[in-house]
């Protein structure tokens, strides 16, 4: 397999800027970012004084891949982490990689797999968008735009997403 070039993103294609529209978009559209990788719902939790936050994205690769690292200029340390429940305690640990089995959506989400940004150089304000570079075991690098979301933001589980969208954001018309 030849090295895949980073294809410039057409912002707005998969990522409407308005937060309300985003709820509709997140489950229905994804963006093909390279010949083999699609992503959707890339977001990072707003951060202020604690200078630390987590970023999430859903990824699907056409071939088996491993996400091995994340980079950004915004944070001193960028790490791949996961949570697990051990001895009745939630524990968070750095991990070496995240497997992306071919053609399966892998969800990085709160309480599970996530990208950790440590010692942020500045605050992350809801509404802005930051780039994070994802590095894969085969050497491929991708730069993805992550939407900064309010701390109160919760991604909806698929099964009640429509219900919640209606409930919390009123009627924006379908």
């Amino acid at each position: 397999m030849n090295k895949l070039a980073i294809i410039p993103l057409l912002l707005g294609l998969g990522w409407p800027v308005l937060a309300d529209e985003q709820h509709h978009a997140e489950h229905h559209s994804s963006t093909q970012i390279s010949q083999s990788i699609e992503f959707r719902h890339a977001w990072v939790r707003a951060a202020g004084e604690q200078q630390i936050t987590a970023a999430f994205v859903q990824l699907r690769s056409a071939e088996d891949k491993q996400l091995v690292a994340v980079h950004s200029d915004l944070a001193e340390f960028n790490e791949v982490h996961t949570h697990s429940m051990v001895d009745g305690m939630m524990q968070m640990r750095e991990i070496s990689h995240i497997d992306l089995p071919a053609n399966q959506w892998v969800n990085l989400q709160p309480g599970g797999l996530h990208l950790m940004l440590i010692n942020l150089q500045r605050e992350l304000t809801p509404g802005e968008e930051i780039p994070l570079q994802l590095l894969f075991a085969d050497g491929e690098q991708l730069s993805l735009p992550f939407q900064v979301m309010e701390r109160t933001y919760l991604p909806e589980a698929e099964h009640h997403s429509e219900h919640d969208t209606e409930m919390h954001h009123g009627h924006h018309g379908h």
Binding site: R45, Q50, I52, T53, A54, H81, H83, M90, M92, P110, G111, H114, M116, I118, R151, T152, Y153, L154
Partner: peptide, 10 residues
């Protein structure tokens, strides 16, 4: 970094 904000958000 993640569990507490998640708990608070819920």
């Amino acid at each position: 970094p993640d569990i507490c904000p998640l708990t608070l958000a819920h």
